[in-house]
Design a protein around this nucleic acid. Structure first.
Lengths: 144, 144
DNA sequence: TTATTTTAAGACCCGGGAGTCTGAAAATGG
DNA sequence: CCATTTTCAGACTCCCGGGTCTTAAAATAA
């Protein structure tokens, strides 16, 4: 099981690709799909969702493409994942019990809640700006 | 996205149900599916995998059912999840990049590896015995 | 032996995520 | 205007996890 869907993976990588761009020009889906080896049509669909969510700004026609609609420091991993796959980043209860929480905990609740909170914080605090900076500084990769 | 599959959830709950039983008698799938409100046939299929993996022992016929094949202190969450859904508890790389690791990290690797290790440790250290003990002591629930 | 209870095994179906394809619509450049 | 480049939109296919159903096999009880 993956923590996030493939769509979210692609969305994150594309957002990083755009943010890591030195210039402010629009980036075409065609270029990104080629550079990161992702299906063009599939990536298009994902980026449309991010555009509708207000994370990206699109311009069509020649010289068109996608750009960030907000400063990279304002966009978090949580924003991106949520825009792509909805509001449930991952299920709260490991055992899938409805209403599991402090009030009515499942046997694993105490143990899992701690980890879950850490991951949620990571996604909520991590911005595109910080990731793009680290990516540039350390020469990290966005494709195989 | 859920961290583990529904099959794993059911497998964990059933294992806990059996481990929490005061007596050592075999428990029927019929009883567990009714008590925990899980599809009988689906639960059967999951428990068969756990039986083949050597975690449970089954006896059929009247008075038959399932029991732990090992001491509860020997069975970990990791054992159970692995027996149900294979060896990949969750993908190592958040971005889904092949070969992501210390050598060739993706932009999120440093941040995610830390969390991943904690979760893996939780699953590896947590035994059925301990969970059953806590469940009994605190009156925790295995169903909605 | 016969009937009953229970797991074992596998075929089958359904819905949704993943990915493809086609045809627009919008903007630019000549 | 016309051709090209690009996003936008939606129908379509494929595969797999989740779930149902049927039949066989094993054990017990009468």
């Amino acid at each position: 099981m993956a923590l996030i869907s493939k769509s979210s993976e692609y969305g994150l990588r594309a957002a990083l690709y755009i943010a890591a761009r030195p210039d402010e020009a629009h980036v075409s889906v065609r270029e990104m799909s080629a550079q990161m080896d992702i299906s063009f049509h599939f990536l298009t669909k994902i980026l449309q969702r991010m555009t509708r969510a207000g994370l990206l700004a699109s311009t069509r026609g020649a010289k068109g493409g996608l750009a960030l609609a907000q400063p990279a420091a304002k966009i978090t991993l949580l924003d991106i994942v949520r825009s792509v796959e909805g509001d449930d980043l991952f299920r709260e209860c490991l055992l899938g019990l409805a209403g599991c929480g402090e009030k009515r905990p499942c046997p694993l609740h105490r143990h899992w809640a701690k980890e879950r909170a850490r991951i949620e914080k990571l996604f909520r605090k991590m911005t595109l700006a910080r990731l793009a900076r680290e990516t540039a500084r350390d020469g990290l990769r966005l494709a195989d």
